[in-house]
């Protein structure tokens, strides 16, 4: 079977997964005790009964569950994400203005993480049990144990409040008029630095452990001894032979754990008041704004499914041993 068929087949198998995710999301919200209108009613206790009836009909809450689900799914597929229970704004608009901020944050963090963890993990593995290895393992272990919100708070305290080097919140200076595009970039980068570093460092720790154990595993393979016996320079052995193979599982994990990354983004965005989807999800949770919450869950899950798909395809492309 060719690569094209493989891609098509993987795309088709993603469909039931996506459907299942939408059913789970819908079921969690709608099978729960209490009705989505309750929070609204708690905020507006004087709502007259006819208004409650009207709202129920408007949001389709008087229909049987499976009908509600199918209606919601069809709306979702046509790109209509409904309206926020709280602000009345279209959900697609609320997410649209924030999605870029989340992507910017997670990609920058991932870039920071990869550029530190790969060299660090390789050095740590090659010079196993050296001082560098011990230091990097301690760093990695501390990093995976660090609550991301605490790290963020400490960064804000030290770098923003104490040293005054970085802003404490937001993705850009509010109300600032830029004279040129570079000034805008500089301002945005300045705001991005701390949140991206926070998310990136926790991620670095996780990836460093992975790269290290992957390289160590690879170094024990027979072909490494063959390469060394052939008289190849150690540098060639490591970079041309070992690293290529050792990074395969890393590629998979990086792709498969994008969901984890987006999860970390929810908390990081909350700490830094970063106007992204994660912070919106958090706010929607506190106010029980279900249309927003359901839309974000489905969108983020879809992103993860697509990432997994791309990972599988990339993996098949770079590893000739894989038969599709």
């Amino acid at each position: 079977m060719g690569l094209k068929e493989y891609v098509v087949r993987r795309l088709i198998t993603a469909i039931p997964t996506l459907l299942a995710i939408s059913v789970i999301t819908f079921a969690i919200v709608h099978l729960a005790p209490g009705d989505p209108l309750q929070f609204f009613l708690a905020l507006n206790p004087d709502t007259p009964p006819w208004m409650i009836e009207f709202l129920k009909r408007k949001y389709g809450l008087d229909r049987p569950l499976h009908e509600q689900y199918i209606k919601w799914l069809l709306m979702l597929l046509s790109g209509d994400l409904g309206y926020s229970y709280i602000s009345g704004e279209p959900v697609s608009y609320m997410i649209g203005v924030r999605v870029w901020n989340t992507i910017k944050l997670t990609l920058t963090a991932e870039l920071i993480a990869l550029s530190i963890s790969i060299p660090l993990g390789v050095i740590s593995a090659v010079k196993s049990n050296s001082a560098v290895d011990h230091a990097s393992r301690v760093f990695a272990l501390m990093g995976v144990s660090m609550p991301v919100f605490w790290l963020g708070i400490m960064f804000i305290y030290v770098f923003s409040l104490w040293l005054g080097l970085f802003p404490t919140f937001g993705a850009a200076t509010t109300g600032k008029v830029y004279s040129n595009i570079f000034e805008q970039w500089a301002d945005e980068l300045w705001h991005l630095a701390l949140p991206a570093l926070t998310l990136g460092l926790v991620r670095t720790a996780f990836l460093t452990r992975l790269v290290r154990s992957s390289v160590i595993g690879e170094l024990q393979m027979d072909y490494v001894m063959t390469a060394r016996m052939k008289g190849l320079k150690e540098r060639v052995v490591i970079y041309k032979h070992v690293l290529r193979n050792a990074l395969l599982p890393v590629v998979t994990v990086v792709g498969l754990s994008m969901g984890f990354m987006l999860g970390g983004a929810v908390i990081t965005e909350t700490v830094f008041a970063w106007p992204g989807m994660g912070r919106l999800a958090w706010w929607a949770t506190l106010t029980r704004d279900y249309p927003v919450l359901m839309a974000i869950t489905v969108i983020i899950s879809t992103m993860v499914v697509l990432f997994n798909l791309v990972t599988d395809i990339v993996y098949a492309l770079i590893d000739p041993r894989i038969k599709y």
């Binding site: 789970i24 999301t25 984890f260 987006l262 999860g263 949770t285 919450l293 899950s301 499914v305 997994n308």
Partner: peptide, 11 residues
């Protein structure tokens, strides 16, 4: 596949 934190806050 569903990000842990989303499922967690949803529940």
């Amino acid at each position: 596949t569903i990000p842990t934190i989303m499922l967690l806050i949803l529940i």
